[in-house]
Design a protein around this nucleic acid. Structure first.
Length: 763
DNA sequence: GAGTTTGAAACT
DNA sequence: CAGTTTCAAACTC
């Protein structure tokens, strides 16, 4: 399964998907290995993570042949000894490439396997995806095997095997350029067992020019599970009080102990950097980036703590070139508070649903992205520029990425990464204060991929691609390492209530700006303003338990929240039932949770109902009609009777005109109200010091609730007056402000008089 | 707010 | 696939 389905790709701006855009820095030396798997036509949303079951172990074996390639440019054989161990568990070394381990549907896997022949996992120099492994059934080890390791057990090498195997991972590398050559180096006999329950994706992004000797950077954003300490000679890496473990039965890769002086010394060792920032959920491990060395020179082999325990999540690994020493930076897990995340809303024509912020991790540089056409939420791990990599222990700061180009997700025909808005427009919220030893490792032009946690509920996995809109995989409440629950992104936001930064609209995407508690992309044709300004209507279900599509909350992939429903099961407390209901709906209609309003055929309107309405009595001019409700015309696929919802319909024009007028009026009133309230609050706040500076502090009691309400009434009355007299907005504002000035004067006058009176009586 | 209407969803 | 029932929202009074 692709990270981004072809359908989504078609909706995405080209600049986003342009793979070459990522490579703004020349890479004279071939360092990248492109591992490519056969593109999948699957339109399913990529993020669904599928998953390794709890207590599954994941073993990834790589062969030396596959990992070592000859550079076409230089003709030199590149070996990555240091990288081998570093990336051994993932078999990743290509710079600027990404490997995403993700579950794919068996059919997809089969197709991919067929497409590549007997060696479905052939590493292509310019490839992008690699179908690496098969996932064993729950409780069984998961074996990920790279090409040339066909003899390894448990590896899905053939199409026939893919189906027989349970869940599968697709390993995807992204970002490889034509000149880049496979450099993956790993011992063939090196097998690393991952006890990561939630291993989702491994991203490798190569980026640094070889000459620059840029430091290899590791960013691990998830907490590391303490299970399975590595008995290696090297000290098991302990991150933020947790232990990174390595279970390499054959060749123990070098494990990095963050406390190790030579590697972990942030200040003393320039070069590789590993930033480990434990996530809120201790059972997850997020590997953000792994640098890819162009050579095995002075680099030390570093074994990633891939041997994560159950529930751990590996997100991405980015690689950068360098022969420089490894630098490890860790962020203390002490700060469990939710870190700010960034939200990116990618606009598109139909299908867009939500822009939801999910503070999935404490890792500060996280962006969540909603891709149009997909109701799944993507998380982008944002790395700052190297200039900001010094890791200030001070408080949070905001910076803008200037150099990074739009996130490009894939190369070649397959687009797999999550489109990201141009980095120039991004505001990045620096991590909260880290401990003194912590260092934030940031890179320029990094690529991120979203890796979603796996679900412990295998019964719904076959339909994971069609999960309800807005559904994300979030740690199960109180579940610890138990797994993840399918949680609507909205609900995650509701639960965590974390601050976040919304990208500015200047990025070219229709995302609204400003801090929001929840934002959505246009839904069913409604404008962003409409959807964002209006909270979701509470449902009133009584018999469906909110587990059928009758319930709008459920149909929209949301948990019921502040609803009026009875016997509601659409919540976390009834997760099992909810998942079953989702499965039932999907069984009945695989597209049950997909947007009903999508692109029409060529030549037709951009938006139309996917199935068409069946109205008989409403004339399609009432909200009973889904077409009319979505403010779109009925189309040829509608089966309505007596339809009046067409372009030339006079009834429709009249209704639309009235509706628009009413809506505009409501919006204006709301905006005026908000603005006035803000102004009142602001001015009142400013007034106090002015008054007090003039000769003593006025009694606080003068700005009472009653005074505020009276002021508000005056202003509101003025606004009504302006509206009744059909004053232009500017004039109305002037009138209101003038009235406000009068109010202020009266307040000040009264206060001053009272003060004088009080002074006269020595009060 | 209660009752009615409506059409999608669910069921047979 | 068609007909019927169920359901909750939209609508009316």
């Amino acid at each position: 399964m692709d990270v981004v389905s072809p359908e989504l790709n078609s909706l995405l701006p080209d600049e986003i998907m342009d793979t070459e855009a990522i490579e703004d820095v020349p890479q004279p030396q071939p360092v990248a290995t492109t591992v490519q798997s056969e593109p999948s036509d699957d339109t399913s949303v990529p993020m669904e993570t599928d998953t390794p079951m709890v207590s599954e172990s994941l073993t990834l074996a790589t062969s030396t042949a596959t990992t070592k390639t000859t550079d076409s440019v230089t003709g030199t054989s590149v070996s990555t000894s240091g990288l081998q161990k570093l990336t051994a568990p993932f078999t990743i070394s290509p710079a600027n490439h990404q490997i995403i381990l993700n579950k794919v549907a068996s059919s997809q896997a089969t197709e991919a396997a067929k497409s590549v022949g007997t060696q479905p996992q052939v590493i292509k120099q310019e490839g992008q995806k690699l179908l690496v492994t098969a996932i064993g059934k729950s409780g069984q080890p998961i074996v990920l095997q790279l090409p040339h390791t066909g003899s390894k057990p448990g590896v899905s090498q053939t199409s026939g095997d893919t189906k027989s195997q349970a869940p599968q991972f697709k390993v995807v590398t992204i970002g490889g350029r034509s000149e880049l050559k496979p450099v993956v180096g790993s011992a063939s006999n090196q097998v690393t067992t991952l006890q990561a329950q939630q291993l989702k994706a491994v991203q490798i992004a190569k980026k640094t020019p070889a000459s620059s000797a840029a430091p290899i950077k590791f960013i691990i954003t998830k907490t590391v599970n303490s299970k399975g300490l590595s008995p290696q000679t090297s000290v098991p890496p302990v991150i933020a009080g947790r232990v990174l473990t390595q279970n390499s039965p054959v060749i123990p890769p070098r494990t990095i102990t963050l406390s190790e002086t030579h590697n972990t010394s942030i200040q003393s060792i320039p070069g590789k950097k590993i930033a480990i920032s434990p996530l809120k959920t201790p059972s997850k491990v997020t590997v953000v980036s792994v640098a890819s060395p162009t050579s095995n020179t002075s680099q030390k082999s570093v074994a990633l703590p891939v041997n994560v325990a159950l529930g751990q999540q590996i997100l991405t690994v980015q690689q950068s070139t360098s022969a420089s020493p490894v630098k490890v930076a860790t962020s203390q897990s002490t700060a469990q508070s939710i870190k700010p995340v960034q939200s990116v809303a990618v606009g598109g024509v139909g299908g867009s649903q939500f822009k939801t912020i999910i503070p999935l991790a404490t890792q500060p540089n996280v962006q969540q992205i909603q891709v149009p056409g997909s109701r799944f939420h993507y998380v982008r791990l944002v790395t700052a520029t190297t200039a900001s990599s010094t890791g200030q222990p001070s408080g949070p700061s905001t910076s803008s990425i200037q150099t990074a180009k739009p996130m490009v997700v894939s190369t070649g025909a397959v687009r797999m990464s999550v489109p990201i808005v141009p980095a120039q427009t991004m505001k990045q919220v620096a991590p909260k204060p880290l401990t003194s030893a912590a260092q934030v490792v940031t890179t320029t032009q990094t690529q991120q991929r979203l890796i979603m946690p796996a679900t412990p509920l295998p019964q719904i996995q076959p339909n994971f691609t069609n999960l309800p809109p807005g559904t994300v995989l979030a740690p199960a409440p109180g579940g610890g390492n138990v797994g993840y629950a399918v949680v609507p992104a909205q609900y995650v936001t509701q639960l965590q209530q974390s601050p976040f930064v919304t990208l500015a609209s200047s990025s070219g995407f229709p995302a609204s700006t400003g801090i929001q508690t929840q934002a959505r992309l246009p839904l069913n044709g409604l404008s962003t303003a409409e959807t964002t300004s209006r909270p979701r209507k509470p449902c009133n279900c009584t018999k469906s338990q909110c587990l059928k599509l009758y319930c709008d909350c459920f149909a929209n992939g949301e948990f019921c929240n502040n609803c009026n429903c009875n016997n509601c099961f659409n919540n976390l407390e009834h997760e099992t039932e909810r998942l079953k209901a989702i499965k039932t709906c999907l069984d009945r209609n695989p597209e049950a949770f997909k947007p009903k309003i999508g692109k029409g055929k060529e030549g037709e309107s951009d938006r139309r109902h996917s199935k068409g309405c069946n109205c008989k009595r409403s004339g399609c001019l009432k909200n009973y009609c889904e077409c009319y409700e979505a403010k779109i015309m009925c189309s040829s696929i509608c089966k309505c009777i007596g339809c009046k919802n067409f372009e030339e319909s006079p009834e429709r024009k009249t209704l639309m005109h009235l509706a628009d007028a009413a809506e505009v009026r409501v919006q204006q009133q709301t905006a005026a109200k908000t603005k006035l309230s803000s102004q009142i609050s602001d001015l009142l706040m400013r007034t106090t010091p002015v008054i007090s500076s003039g000769g003593g502090r006025l009694p606080y009691t003068f700005v009472t609730k009653e005074v505020l309400e009276a002021t508000y009434e005056c202003l509101l009355e003025q606004a009504k007056k302006a509206e009744q007299t059909h004053q232009p907005q500017a004039e109305a504002e002037r009138m209101i402000l003038e009235e406000f000035g009068h109010c202020l004067m009266r307040i000040i006058s009264s206060a001053g008089k009272a003060k004088a009176d009080c002074a006269s009586i020595n009060c």
